[in-house]
Design a protein around this nucleic acid. Sequence first.
DNA 1: GAATCTCCGACCGAAACCATCGGAGCAAAT
DNA 2: ATTTGCTCCGATGGTTTCGGTCGGAGATTC
Lengths: 160, 160
Amino acid sequence: MLKFSKKADYALLSLQYMATVQSGIDATPRVVNTKEIAEEHNIPVELLAKVLQTLARHQLIESHHNGPKGGYALGREPRAITLAQVLEAIEGPLGLTDCSHEKDDHSQCEQMNHCNIRTPLFKIQESIFQLLNSMSIEDLMVEETPMIFVESLKPQGVPS
Amino acid sequence: MLKFSKKADYALLSLQYMATVQSGIDATPRVVNTKEIAEEHNIPVELLAKVLQTLARHQLIESHHNGPKGGYALGREPRAITLAQVLEAIEGPLGLTDCSHEKDDHSQCEQMNHCNIRTPLFKIQESIFQLLNSMSIEDLMVEETPMIFVESLKPQGVPS
DNA sequence: GAATCTCCGACCGAAACCATCGGAGCAAAT
DNA sequence: ATTTGCTCCGATGGTTTCGGTCGGAGATTC
């Protein structure tokens, strides 16, 4: 539950990689191609290509001319690319429920005609959005501790 | 993306309904059966049955004797049932990535041998957990404004 | 004791997702 | 001008998850 799709993982990995690679170089942002990222992270090239295409279509990255020396580079500075933007580009509009986006009609949700949990769920949704919007690619560029295990995912005692 | 499954929706609806129904009655918690909930919210009975079974197995609700007059009731007070518990019961252990739970070995994640986004993602994950753990069934029992549309899901300007 | 109603586990089709393949277009290098 | 290597785009297949359905087992009421 709440798991990112692999495409989303690949997108985040790629963006972080591109940001790291071109950091320190001010004038000429380095162009990096699909194959390089794929080999670096050991993911299938063709699938990654599709992910990068999608990111380019949403202008999160720029495709620098075809042919040799071609490739991608970040479209903006890392800080200006939020995680919400990335996820939305890859997975489409995000929301906890189906009825989050039906601006036009709410006929879809007839099955829950007496739906009483909409409002509180929207509040949760809003909090998650805020969280994902507050973090950018820049925040992914931290020195990495090799392996961290989150031990207790279980709720530690019940709020009473 | 980030969407709840229908089973999760059904679970939350049911719990909220059971909590509402038995509120005001102090001594004898009212037992409610599957059919009643299903008809109330217009969802398939058999599927809802499975959801309730799962909830019972995780002791979020109690199954009161079979036969006529049988049914379910909340296992604890609404405040003691967090959303995280519900989701985890229905969907299994929740985490943004696959490598969130591999306590034993990390062989699974060979494909991302140079995975550099683990730590920041775990931070996001932790925040979401905290959020889902801070809200309980009780928080779902609010007076409902008939229909609310969240208008702007899009990021409103970029943090610079 | 029979009937009725419930909980419970097993089963099946549908849909989404991951991954793959082939081809077209284009710019740079030769 | 030709070749090379890369980006793009569409169509396709296999696999897993999810939504939904079915029949059986157990208990209580009449």
